[in-house]
Design a binder for these strands. Structure first.
Lengths: 169, 169
DNA sequence: AGGGAATCGATACAAATGAAAACACCAAAA
DNA sequence: TTTTGGTGTTTTCATTTGTATCGATTCCCT
């Protein structure tokens, strides 16, 4: 028998069978999920934060007082997620939310002292776990991974037109 | 003023402020999400498939008749997702599900003629989109990205102990 | 054989997500 | 000034996802 057959005994075109495990979107999804789980577990147990909450906190911690919309742009989160995460953070006393004095529709999110403390404590944790991840790769691989992800993300962004917002595993 | 201050006017340790956009887990999540969205849209409009369904179909298409558990292992999906995706595929007439003759608990999933047709048509689509993604990177970057994701995923797998299963964006 | 633990798959229920609608407000035109 | 359309944010609701559980069956040990 010359022609290859797949597990069904059928002739699958003439080419290589499709291998999910070498399919980039699959690998990307699996890796992202695993990494997210690792971080989520740490954030949750150490600080009672979800990942969306952590992201919002990270943005406010860096840029200071922000509108929810601005947070969404910096954190690549849609407005619903920002709204919910912000509400949760306010409830926990990590953020304060007031009216934007210049715009009756707008809100302004800012750190409380408590939130600032959490922020300064959670950042080293995040960096630490990231460093642990980096340990699994060579310096060069890590650098390329970062660069490639950035490029790929941008490339997909172009393909799908203007960003529809989203994310946060 | 010698010591740097962040947007809050507070002294954040002595180091660089935390930049979410250069944080690997963040980038990974965003990229994975965008890519998943792109594929999901195509699968949905072209074949009425969700990503979990596509994964199950890909596994059966490659390995032939499989138990749901086996599918879950090959596709990195927990059993609930496999169960649901399989049910949906059976409902669409793409898969058949019968009793495992050797084990009263087990089921066996196998392709129908219809499912086989879909599979042979969806695989080129998937490869095509993947190729489009690859266009955004150099050959070397693409190769490293794949390799790095594999390594990273495995590394995280070790850190978090035996896999808890999951995934499918 | 017989009983208890483990496995396979489905189901139930709860939490997270996203799309669309609702709400409150602004701003520009008539 | 009233209307009209648009923007910022929250809320609602349907869908998706995950954890815990259940029923059925097999495996293992005595």
């Amino acid at each position: 028998m010359k022609t290859p057959k797949n597990a069904n005994g059928t002739h699958e075109s003439v080419t290589v069978p499709f291998e999910l495990e070498n399919f980039l979107p699959y690998r990307l999804s699996v890796t992202s999920h695993r990494v997210a789980r690792l971080f989520a577990a740490q954030y949750a147990t150490q600080f009672g934060l979800t990942i969306p909450e952590w992201r919002v906190l990270a943005v406010i911690g860096r840029f200071g007082t922000c509108s929810p919309t601005a947070v969404g742009e910096f954190a690549a989160m849609d407005k619903v997620k920002v709204s919910r995460a912000a509400a949760a953070l306010v409830a926990k006393g990590f953020l304060r939310q007031n009216q934007d004095p210049n715009d009756g529709r707008g809100r302004l999110l800012s750190m409380t002292r408590k939130g600032l403390t959490v922020h300064t404590n959670v950042v080293p944790l995040a960096r630490g776990i990231e460093a642990t991840l980096a340990d699994g790769l060579t310096k060069a691989e890590w650098a390329t991974l970062n660069k490639a992800l950035r490029k790929l993300s941008a490339h997909v962004g172009e393909l799908t037109g203007p960003d529809v917002g989203a994310t946060a595993d």
